[in-house]
Amino acid sequence: MRELTYWQGVQEALTEEMARDEMVFLLGEDIGVYGGAFGVTRGMLERFGSERVRNTPVSEAAIVGVALGAAVTGMRPVVEIMFMDFITLAMDQLVNHAAKMHYIFGDQAQVPLVVRTPAGGWRSYGPSHSQSWEAWFLHTPGLKVVAPATPYDAKGLLKTAIRDDNPVLFVEHKLLYATKGPVPQEEYTVPLGQAHIKRAGRDVTLVTYSYLTLMALEVAQELEKENIGVEVIDLRSLSPLDINQVVASVKKTGRVVIAEEGHKTGGVGAEVGMQIQERAYEYLDAPIQRVAAKDVPIPFSYQLEKHILPSKEDIYRAVTQVMAQI
């Protein structure tokens, strides 16, 4: 199978959906000639023109609000928010408007809106360009949240998100853009709300998503040498959350580690861990362990940043810790 990078997977999804449906269009800051801050839309302006690859002023709240207005009147906008940190500026439009419109107004209001945004650290971009805020949006009924880890999933999930009539927050990771993986030439989509077992294992369930999936797989490889079988589950979608697949794995292994890049308190791990506890408490042989960013802002200096963000060592330690419990 041919290989594509993650950014190419995202771009192919955008291109194919724009070719398939003329209602699909892009809007965001510097997505035209510049091709987006991370180059995802490079070359798309030439192909689709400035109406459909619509460069906007620096106005995140209105970008999302305008896209919402276009979405409820028949268009299918795909927004790019340059850094996930900037989504704070569009919170009202996402949380008070986009997420609620169908619930309140009923079937007359369909919201086929996708907001793509790069998240994550390890780039020395400092405290306002390195964050992973997806946990906030699990707390927002009505929003779907997707965070793919591979080029294959990035393409397939984005195509599904664009065809979905509900608002979807599509979280990409800066460190994933250059990673490569198999992506078939032929048309395919990946459904939202389905986790993926990246690696089977009998001893411990390691639940993660986005960039940390790559770390988790490396740790699982190392632990294999120590004869510990780690089952790595990539959630892919955080909302809807495929808790059934997670619980099925936990019932097999009895031990769980949840790894995420967001801050620990009130994070994705807190939610997933509690749901496991609610559904599979009697199967647990050890307390659930969480690996996450520490509860301070993401500092600039790479030495500090590395210390605050979760590491492979943290994951390794958490797995061995749950394995040590009898």
Binding site: G69, A70, Q93, H97, F105, A109
Partner: peptide
């Protein structure tokens, strides 16, 4: 709201409907 008569919604957030209206105009 009643989309069938072009009413896209009243709004509990002061100014919250302004970008929405603008997006409808773009559409």
């Amino acid at each position: 709201a009643d989309f069938s008569i072009g009413h896209l919604g009243s709004n509990g957030i002061t100014g919250g409907g302004i970008p929405l209206a603008t997006g409808a105009a773009l559409s």
